[in-house]
Design a protein around this nucleic acid. Structure first.
Lengths: 254, 254
DNA sequence: TGCTGTGAATCGCTTCACAGCC
DNA sequence: GGCTGTGAAGCGATTCACAGCA
């Protein structure tokens, strides 16, 4: 790899494991739902079920944040919502830009889950001059030429790339040069960035390929396996209590 | 959790670790690019760089598939493309249905990465009667009423859910009842499925929240840290050589 | 009594380092 | 000599099981 191990030793994130960070948004969503139903407290068992994880893991996760529960009772929903939001940095406003306003970019611009979590779509950017000025999700699309100015004027530090693969690296370079330090990449390419910039990747076709792998295994096992049992009437299971992760996207912490 | 450890002990996937499976599509993409440039062979070092992982990991991953390399030389690109494709089950045709043809569903329908990997969009399904018959990506949208028939007629085993959160579980139930055994879920909900059904989740807002967490950490460190060094002129780094995964979606293997 | 918080055990993945082969 | 393939070590995350507190 490029750097010969510049990777900071372990000071990294002062404690909270990556795996835990990745689950906090999950807990937050479940808690928000409880909050909306005015549920005052919740046990680790209940919340774990709602989030689709097991309760020991949830308790361990929360223990990294502090001791926010009450023994014999459970967790105060509102308090926990606040603590997790704060930990994730969602109590502040994060302006984001979306670059590449095709189908996917438009879908992202319209996605409600952003606004409700402190993310504000500050600008939409596309290379097609014909798109310029056209409003998408109520926001006028701006041309790529103005990318740097847009980033600076809005103090954007998070960029979303939804361009075709061929344009992604170039867009990424410009975003980074303009001051963006976190990138969510939907283009099917490996982006190369300087140290200190985080990239997370979402790759639609990779997800399907992973499913295909398991699907194929099922077919084989069904044919060759001892019991030709169809998976029809089996006990229900929270889908999110899933195997070891092994997913591709992740963050490299500077 | 529902079942009291029905989770098959370790026979699971006859060897190949989940983490490796999740990277195979990555290697495949890099290899396909090499193949298009008519590169005959590639070393673990080169391929690893192209895929954004380190070479030891790549070699270990390939060792689970078999000994497909040649010492002192490297890997035959075409041969490896074939072997990985076969392992992932991409040498066969996978008809998929997409349920929920909003912005995101349309983006998925138009996404080129599917067709090129053996995935065929067999049908688009939406609950809005006004959508029925309207072509999206050249495929006419069908009404949810016909979901079961569509699944059966096309022998679909993989379903993509791109509906609003509120509809997702119900759609999921119907897909599963009709015979779907793998689901890619874009709705921000925990889906509950019977044993034997795989679910992978892609959650856009969770990805952003994870980025926000790290972004916040950077801000803190910059203020408090010893050296107020901006991450400007740092050595380049393949972004995909990322930290420990800790991503949420994953597969639970029956 | 009930549920949280957590040390200790375990598991699986990653990385190292080098033997083995071309 | 160069590069693969792989035991062994290392490391992080998960799970267990129970002490500690309301």
């Amino acid at each position: 790899m490029a750097t010969g191990r510049t990777h900071r030793p372990a000071t990294r994130s002062r404690g909270i494991p990556e795996a835990t960070v990745a689950r906090l948004p999950l807990y937050l969503r479940a808690l928000t739902a409880l909050s909306e139903r005015s549920v005052p407290t919740v046990s680790s068992e209940e919340l774990a079920a709602a989030a689709g994880v097991n309760s020991a893991k949830l308790r361990k996760d929360f223990s990294y944040l502090g001791s926010y529960g009450t023994r014999g009772v459970g967790y105060d929903v509102e308090y926990l919502v606040y603590q997790i939001s704060r930990e994730l940095g969602l109590t502040q406003d994060w302006p984001v830009v979306i670059v590449g306003i095709g189908n996917l970019g438009a879908a992202l611009a319209n996605y409600g889950g952003f606004a409700s979590r402190g993310f504000r779509v500050a600008a939409l950017i596309d290379a097609d001059p014909a798109m310029a000025g056209k409003p998408v999700a109520g926001i006028p699309v701006q041309h790529t030429d103005d990318l740097e100015k847009i980033i600076e004027d809005n103090g954007v530090s998070i960029g979303v790339i939804a361009t075709p693969a061929g344009a992604a690296q170039q867009v990424c370079d410009r975003l980074v040069a303009a001051g963006v330090t976190s990138i969510l990449n939907f283009a099917p390419t490996v982006l190369s960035v300087p140290d200190g910039v985080d990239v997370r990747k979402v790759d639609l076709s990779i997800e399907l390929q992973i499913l295909a792998f398991h699907e194929q295994r099922k077919a084989v096992e069904e044919g060759a396996g001892a019991d030709g049992a169809h998976p029809a009437a089996a006990p229900r299971k929270e889908s999110a209590e899933q195997g070891p992760d092994g997913d591709v996207p992740a963050v490299m912490p500077a």
